[in-house]
Design a binder for these strands. Sequence first.
DNA 1: TAGATTGTTAATCGATTAACAATC
DNA 2: TAGATTGTTAATCGATTAACAATC
Lengths: 223, 223
Amino acid sequence: MLDELRNQAGEDPSPSADNPKIPKAVIKRLSLYTRVLQKFSMSGIEKISSKELGDALGLNSAQVRKDLAYFGQFGVPGLGYYVEELRTRIKSILGTDRTVRLALVGVGNLGQALLSYTTQFQRDGFRVVVAFDADKRKVGGERMGVPVFHVSDMGRHLKEMAIDIVMLTVPAGVAQQVTDLAIQAGITAILNFVPERLLVPEHVKVHYVDLSIEIESLSYYLK
Amino acid sequence: MLDELRNQAGEDPSPSADNPKIPKAVIKRLSLYTRVLQKFSMSGIEKISSKELGDALGLNSAQVRKDLAYFGQFGVPGLGYYVEELRTRIKSILGTDRTVRLALVGVGNLGQALLSYTTQFQRDGFRVVVAFDADKRKVGGERMGVPVFHVSDMGRHLKEMAIDIVMLTVPAGVAQQVTDLAIQAGITAILNFVPERLLVPEHVKVHYVDLSIEIESLSYYLK
DNA sequence: TAGATTGTTAATCGATTAACAATC
DNA sequence: TAGATTGTTAATCGATTAACAATC
């Protein structure tokens, strides 16, 4: 599982009065909503109904309204939602209204693919600001405008550069080791593309993305 | 999600007597099980309990047993499961006991990352046998041992090479167009890495893998 | 036989959808 | 006001976990 599955990370932000345990699936859909809203916004459309928003993503309109209701009342009965306002509110909820700073560990093929997303990330409030590799030949220069350092210096750079999220695209054998180093440097969020289960302390959030599982499970549906 | 989310593909194989609607999440876990079983098998361990299998993946032992129970009785009460036997049975269920033939459309960074997985895929019963690109400079030769043709010839090659699954890593603007071509050529399973919803006929199964959503939703948990 | 672990049912938990009064 | 669409509750659906008799 990549995704969808294998969200065996830590616990959600603790449920409280104004935060009554938000399902993980809701958070993922919020990101999808911003993407659709962005498109509508660029076409100059100013309002959108839950039906329209749902249709664009293959979702039920009730689900859209319920998702949003977790965070407040954003709509106008009889009218719908104001596109730009809703987009802004959701980005604020997700925390992508400020720029999230990413580090990439492992500048292999997948790593570089993620780096090439940088431009898109930037638009979305994300930015890969540093990369690390164990191969000295890859170290020193830049890849896609991102400086590449040796993993032995990782801890220091992670702190200095105020990294929010570490993306792991290293060989399976060293994933845990690299994870430990990152956590020592104060990292609390890891996006793990390595098909290995990582052991981390409670306060660290690991998100698993497992590309080969996606392919493998699709095979079942061929028959 | 990736994963997890955005499984808005067609319907499951129709529920019948010996096939009582298998949840999608179960299928994904089956792939994970084979991976763990492979490891145990290589360490020379011959049997494994649902507890051990679950622990290796952070899953409940009851869930492991229930997942397997969808497909028959594989275990021995008081003993557990025979590693190699179980592995073989699951691979047979998933259809990865034969080699699944993949085509890649779009030889960009992500495409090449997926190509570089080829070796691993092969071990798992997967093989990328052909790739396509619209850039003439990429066409003609091979990448990671896989021949690259121009998209204009895609339909013909897909048929001739008996492709099972098409992996899409093309620019967003052409995703639907490429999809239509693939479907015309008889493709029924698509693994879509492009953040675009694809319109496909009922019989075609689309699986969405959305890397930037994974990152974006992780941002929420930073706070 | 005693100990262990399965397969399976029932209980719980979570997520989606339908329905509709409230409201612009 | 009439029409439309929200926010929200209740109903449904699906997935996970607990519990335990069956069985090796």
